[in-house]
Design a protein around this nucleic acid. Structure first.
Lengths: 257, 257
DNA sequence: GCAAAAGTGTTGTAGCTACACCCATGG
DNA sequence: CCATGGGTGTAGCTACAACACTTTTGC
């Protein structure tokens, strides 16, 4: 206790000690031809792949900044978006390979040492409808593409870790909430919805039990239409019943106590 | 797409636009005489109550910074600590009532406008054993106290919102994980554990069903001892079985698919 | 001895798993 | 006509809520 006191008096607090830079990175999930995909950028000078990200303006919340960034990368407004973790290992942004790209892009900064400071990044995950997205590279990259989750290689900085954590979060949320609304087109079959669940969870689900369970939630509306032009029996199309879907989200679906 | 291009070329990125300050705030939960308590500070000049918090050094992760702050406020090392949300509403730190206290405490800062920038804060929640804590105010406050959750009044800035979100997170985690290990003393009765659950969840639980359910997890070891000196039948004491407890944490306890 | 809390047992029900079975369709 | 996937049904099991009942202690 006395040691505490002493160190308190001795210490002179200088706010320069506390300067960090804050950024955000987004893991954008899409679903197409029964595969989960992630939106990634290829950096200009190093050709390494990276998650879309950016900085936050002074008058923005992190959420607004993430929406802005994703609007630029996908063309979409009103994206389903959730923050899931802050990545702040002081080593994470050493030798940031994006710095040459920033200089190339004409980024100016207040002082020479600006890029030597570490970056703290807030991770967001987004769920988007694959077909609605028009991928656009940013100033630092010359490609923006969907890559199958299983084909994602080494990403810039700690972006593999960010992706991993996003996936874990998505799996957790899936148990609680009827995700799928944001990833699927308006009309879909139960098999497509099941494949999505199987892909996210990384395991197979019993076709018949899945069907009854998801229908029991009463969040789907069966349409008159069936999917045409496929082999075998034509499956019925469904869409989400928004009212019941939102109610289910509020209540949560499992876990009692 | 062309509009995108045009705006990209027109815009000159100046990193000064992106300067924000990052801080952290902690919701420290303790449990004593069957009540959930939160550790709060009383600020020097305004006498308003606030959550313990601080800034992050350049060579620290947010987690390390939060541990350091809580070590100062509680005297404890090795605190159970989890980040749960980033609070970044640009209005949240307008008219920060802590600024006079900072000036009083001799805090120096690089430029006059430093405090006019907004603060982005990472929220952490901590679970500690009440009796082990030795509450210590910081440089900006002249009191550090446990307050019953239900008696918490108006807090500084958006700290009520932060507390609320911490509680929601704790409730969510409770369904998944056998919390209680960090909040209770080494030896405890099943009634005490149940009261803790009831307090966090805000509702009563059936005594007998709770007992069987929690024992079924196989994370508790029944001791030979009983609690002495209480009215009525002496209840058995239990302690956590750390091996099984950790296994249960890994697996998660509920939610199938 | 009686009030109050601890400890153990029982029963009905909801929801799940693991199947069997029939239907529709494209090749 | 048959392989394949869609749609519906059912039996057995598990987990849980809602109870009843007994035991132990302080006053």
């Amino acid at each position: 206790m006395e040691a505490e006191q002493a160190s308190n008096e001795k210490r002179i607090i200088t706010m320069k000690d506390f300067l960090s830079h804050i950024s955000l990175d987004c893991v954008v999930f899409g679903f197409h031809s029964n595969q989960l995909k992630v939106l990634v950028l290829q950096m200009k000078t190093t050709s390494t792949w990276a998650l879309p990200g950016g900085f936050v303006y002074e008058d923005e919340s992190m959420e607004v900044a993430a929406s802005r960034v994703l609007k630029e990368r996908t063309g979409l407004n009103e994206i389903f978006l959730h923050q899931f973790h802050v990545f702040s290992d002081p080593q994470r942004s050493k030798q940031n390979p994006a710095v040459p790209d920033m200089i190339l892009a004409g980024v100016t900064f207040p002082e020479k040492s600006w890029f030597e400071k570490r970056f703290i990044s807030v991770g967001f995950y987004a769920l988007v409808e694959f077909s609605q997205v028009n991928p656009q590279p940013d100033e630092l990259s010359d490609a923006c593409e969907w890559i199958n989750l299983e084909n994602i290689g080494i990403l810039m900085l700690d972006h593999n870790e960010i992706l991993q954590k996003a996936l874990e979060t998505l799996r957790m949320q899936l148990t609680f909430q009827p995700i799928g609304y944001n990833l699927l087109p308006e009309k879909f079959t139960l098999s497509e919805l099941r494949k999505l669940y199987e892909t996210i969870l990384g395991k197979e689900l019993d076709r018949r039990n899945f069907q009854r369970k998801i229908l029991a939630y009463d969040i789907l509306t069966r349409l008159e239409e069936v999917r045409q032009g496929v082999a075998h029996k034509a499956p019925a199309l469904y869409k989400f019943n928004l009212v019941n879907y939102k109610r289910a989200l509020d209540e949560g679906l499992q876990g009692r106590w």
